[in-house]
Write a protein that binds this DNA or RNA. Structure first.
Length: 526
DNA sequence: CTGGGGACGGGGCCC
DNA sequence: AGGGCCCCGTCCCCA
């Protein structure tokens, strides 16, 4: 019995020992696993923090890009040129026009873009952008470091500054309080080794910008001085800000195209004039070959001119101060337009830049090129980035042929230079009309087919399409034409006149375009 | 069927 | 404002 008790006691002790050993093993295992687990948790947390940081950076980048993308059309004009290679357009419809929807990139009338160029060694470009997108982009986000598809003009500015080693004045500060609205002020200081690019809410800068806009003789506020269809006297020594009359003249299709606003039955075109919200019809050609502008759709929608009257670009004008008693017009809301003509005109402009260095023109591009400390980014080797993509047009011959007026030999009479192509014009109205070809502003719209035109005469001529009016009749065959030039062309059928001869096969054609097509088809290898 | 050429319409743009 | 020229696209004819 006693032995049995002892045996049981020993058994119990052994069991206890075994149990303790087992518990110890288990505890050891748990401890080890726990240590490993904690290590893994720590590493995971570390990775999590790193990823979070990365995400924040990405968000900042995205915000910045959004701010850059919200730039106004005035800045994006070069973007259009960049993507304007002929024939690149997308045919989205038989008729297209570019309008900017209200609320998109909310530029308001009180958001001037001043490109003020002084005459000294140091000049400043102050661009004040009041954008609600900037609010969404978050605080402290400054328009720097172009990434992606920003307009080359601005991005070049920015990249230039970065390349020159100039530290950005503004620093990203995600902790700064959210501003209800951020005014991005981009200050470019040229004539200095570097220029600063900063984003700030500096109301002083804003005030200065407004002062620049409204300084001197504020012609834009005085329509009497600059009647839309008047040719005012030549400007004085001060720069003369010239703003295009932003009328949209809708034809009623039964009369002449006038923008007088007078309800004249013989000139029955209604005029919509709203100084605050002037609709503009920015239209492109409706065929594929001319649709280069349609590449530019980053912030522009293609809409019918009249269908979307409300969706128009309403942006304050831009005053470009010119040296040398030259005044120009740049309508900030009008940098959308006809790519076809733009290509030619920009070719003209480039040629005028290259061949006429003495022309005292300071268009934005010109200025940019001159002052860019690392201008190689826009130099000949890199010019394709902006111009050559645009200008691979076979219109160069025509452009050269027409370039005669570009340099304005008679500078005394043609003292109004187009800021885009440098062509000289004798009066203000002419340069206004001419610049519509660059800007794409087409204030004369047909309310029967929604076509828009830059000139009243073009609208009037177009009206005959609807009216069927054919006042010109052929004396030989009684065939009638709506246009005199078409009648003259038709007369060649009867006369057999073929003034255009192919230099390769001696074949003759009545029209130059026939000859060109013929040579393209048959002598393209020559 | 295909491609070249002619006729014509229409818009762009300069003068 | 109109003329004029340019270009492009379309339609048609014909080889």
């Amino acid at each position: 019995m006693a032995n049995g008790m002892i045996f049981h006691t020993q058994i119990a002790s052994i069991m206890e020992m075994l149990a303790n050993a087992a518990v110890a093993d288990i505890c050891k295992l748990v401890d080890d696993d726990y240590a490993v687990f904690r290590l893994e948790i720590t590493q995971s947390q570390k990775e999590n923090r790193a990823l979070r940081r990365k995400l924040q950076l990405l968000e900042m980048k995205v915000a910045r890009e959004r701010v850059l993308a919200s730039r106004p059309s005035s800045v994006k004009i070069l973007d259009r040129y960049r993507g304007m290679a002929r024939g690149e357009g997308h045919l989205t419809g038989g008729h297209r026009s570019f309008v900017k929807p209200v609320g998109h990139n909310t530029w308001r009338d009180d958001q001037p873009i001043t490109v003020d160029e002084g005459s000294g060694t140091s000049t400043q470009h102050v661009i004040v952008i009041e954008s609600e997108d900037a609010e969404a982009a978050g605080p402290g986000v400054k328009p720097e470091g172009s990434e992606g598809e920003e307009d080359p003009w601005h991005s070049r500015d920015i990249q230039t500054g970065a390349a020159s080693g100039a530290p950005h004045v503004a620093t990203e500060d995600p902790t700064s309080p959210v501003q209800p609205r951020i005014r991005h002020c981009i200050t470019e200081v040229s004539g200095m080794p570097n220029f600063a690019l900063k984003s700030e809410t500096n109301t002083k800068t804003l005030t200065e910008t407004h002062r620049l806009l409204h300084t001197g003789t504020d012609h834009r506020s005085d329509p009497k001085r600059l009647g839309p269809l008047r040719c005012p006297a030549a400007p004085g020594s001060e720069y003369l800000p010239v703003f295009q009359s932003q009328k949209t003249v809708h034809s009623r299709g039964d009369g002449d195209a006038l923008d007088t606003g007078v309800d004249d039955p013989s000139c029955s075109y209604s005029t919509e004039m709203d100084s605050g919200n002037m609709p503009l019809c920015l239209e492109t050609q409706n065929d594929l070959s001319r649709g280069g502008w349609n590449r530019y759709t980053s912030s522009v929608h293609s809409e019918g001119c009249l269908d979307k009257k409300g969706e128009v670009i309403v942006i304050d004008e831009v005053t470009v101060k010119m040296e040398g008693d030259i005044s120009l017009t740049w309508n900030a809301d009008s940098h959308l337009g006809d790519g076809h003509s733009q290509g030619r005109d920009f070719l003209d402009y480039r040629e005028s830049l290259e061949t006429n260095p003495n022309v005292a023109t300071h268009s934005p591009l010109h200025t940019l090129k001159d002052r860019d400390p690392v201008s190689t980014s826009m130099g000949p080797s890199d010019s394709h980035s902006l111009f050559d993509q645009v200008l691979n047009s076979n219109d160069s011959a025509r452009a050269q042929a027409r370039e005669g007026g570009a340099t304005s030999d008679s500078s005394k009479e043609k003292r109004f230079l187009c800021m885009f192509c440098n062509k000289g014009f004798s009066c203000l109205q002419k340069v206004e009309i001419h610049q519509r070809f660059h800007t794409g502003v087409k204030p004369f719209s047909c309310n029967q087919c929604h076509m828009c035109f830059a000139q009243a005469g073009d609208l009037k001529r177009h009206q005959r399409v609807h009216t069927g009016e054919k006042p010109y009749s052929c004396p030989q065959c009684e065939k009638r034409f709506s246009r005199l030039d078409k009648l003259k062309m038709h007369l060649k059928v009867h006369t057999g006149e073929r003034p255009f001869a192919c230099t390769h096969c001696r074949k003759r054609f009545s029209e130059r375009s026939y000859l060109r097509i013929h040579q393209q088809k048959n002598h393209s290898t020559l």
